[in-house]
Design a protein around this nucleic acid. Structure first.
Lengths: 221, 221
DNA sequence: CGCCGTTTTGACATGGTTCAAACGTCGTGG
DNA sequence: CCACGACGTTTGAACCATGTCAAAACGGCG
């Protein structure tokens, strides 16, 4: 049922030099390799982040290892904003990632105004809307419907040209843990959608071409 | 799979007299009977609300009738706050309900300050946190675990004395549509938890006594 | 008392999981 | 350049938790 990987190596989030910079500047860039942890569930929420490049996943674990991926964050997306003092989710790099870290100080939602504050507020509301869609998906949709929804959503966010060619930055395990399925189910649904002609998978299986959006949208419901 | 009731009677949200008051005052009380609609999915979001008494459910429907209940709102809770101009959920009374309606104007999250604005911001963040918990529940927990989580959460929010006696204001169908299960599964899990001695159901089946919170919490994970 | 909506129970069906193994792909080192 | 090992993906077969369908039991109310 769960596919969490206990294998992620524990790596210091930032180099010492960077930490000093982070303390003195309002924002700072950081890079992470595939699978590296940006912050952990329970860490002090001293920063929030914006994806500069790559994809970030935010997730939680149950004590027995079951994992739920809250969201995938694409370039431009803000993540890691918290109401309290702690991160309620862990964040990890999916592949190579660069992020911009912003000091949290005084960026509480109700506090100071300014363009960034507005953006953070907007990001929070978007996160809420997404979470609500995801509840519908997890609570009431079939495996096929979940995959269809996911692909359409990703296609929209990635602004893929109408070529319909869509790169899937994350492995099947991540899709599974995001969609409340197993890896095997994800794989099977994808191959079935391919057999039915709704999608076409690239040879390396990491890209999809959406061949029949209407049908996918119909599944999306 | 779905248990949505196409039976909810369409009832004008408020009496004409009240509507006039609502237009001239910043807030106004409204009452609703069991099953009445407070606002519908897609309605213009001219107001947001606070529960004065009773329980409110906010939910969405899929075109084929499958229903997902986003949340149950108890006295004191704020609901119906929207980023855009439309309600993304419908809201209905579970049993008799009184709510306070607040005009939305200028209450946008980033706008005016003031105690109510702060409260709305806090409510939004709480809604996000709840939605995230619910994703974990829907994506990765078993039926028993979902029921246990739900009961504990409700017990906490209802501030039941340590007597452990907890009133369930909503019917089984509503629990089912909140937890991503069927009515039958909800019923079976409850009776099984009762047989196992973790809970005791009242004769009328609308109250639970949590007999073994430790065990429930263990299930909650 | 008798109706009606809700809850519970039973028997059965099935979508998705589990367990296991084959297959590809990619990076590494001989 | 190829053999190798690690990892991710796919596929197969058996299983099971939950869904489905049907009916009985219960409680409330006129």
């Amino acid at each position: 049922m769960q596919t969490a990987l206990a294998t992620t190596p524990r790596i210091p989030s930032i180099a010492p030099g960077l930490r000093i910079e982070a303390a003195s500047r309002p924002e700072t860039q950081r890079g992470f390799g595939a699978g590296e942890e940006i912050f952990a569930e329970g860490d002090r929420a001293g920063f929030f982040y914006r994806v500069a490049s790559g994809t970030v996943r935010t997730c939680r674990l149950l004590p027995d290892g079951r994992r739920q991926i809250d969201a995938f964050h694409l370039p431009g997306d803000i993540f890691g904003v918290e109401a309290g003092t702690e991160h309620r989710f862990g964040a990890e790099a999916v592949g190579e990632v660069r992020v911009i870290a912003y000091r949290r100080e005084r960026m509480l939602l109700t506090g100071e105004d300014g363009p960034l504050a507005r953006e953070v507020a907007a990001a929070t509301l978007r996160a809420l809307a997404r979470a609500q869609d995801q509840m519908m998906l997890l609570g009431r949709k079939s495996a096929r419907e979940r995959i269809a929804s996911f692909l359409l959503d990703l296609a929209e966010r990635m602004a893929d040209g109408p070529s319909g060619h869509l790169r899937l930055p994350m492995p099947r395990t991540d899709m599974a843990d995001h969609l409340g399925l197993t890896v095997e189910s994800v794989s099977r649904c994808l191959t079935q959608l391919e057999r039915d002609g709704l999608i076409a998978l690239s040879p390396d299986r990491h890209s999809v071409r959406l061949r029949d959006r209407a049908a996918l949208r119909h599944l999306d419901a």
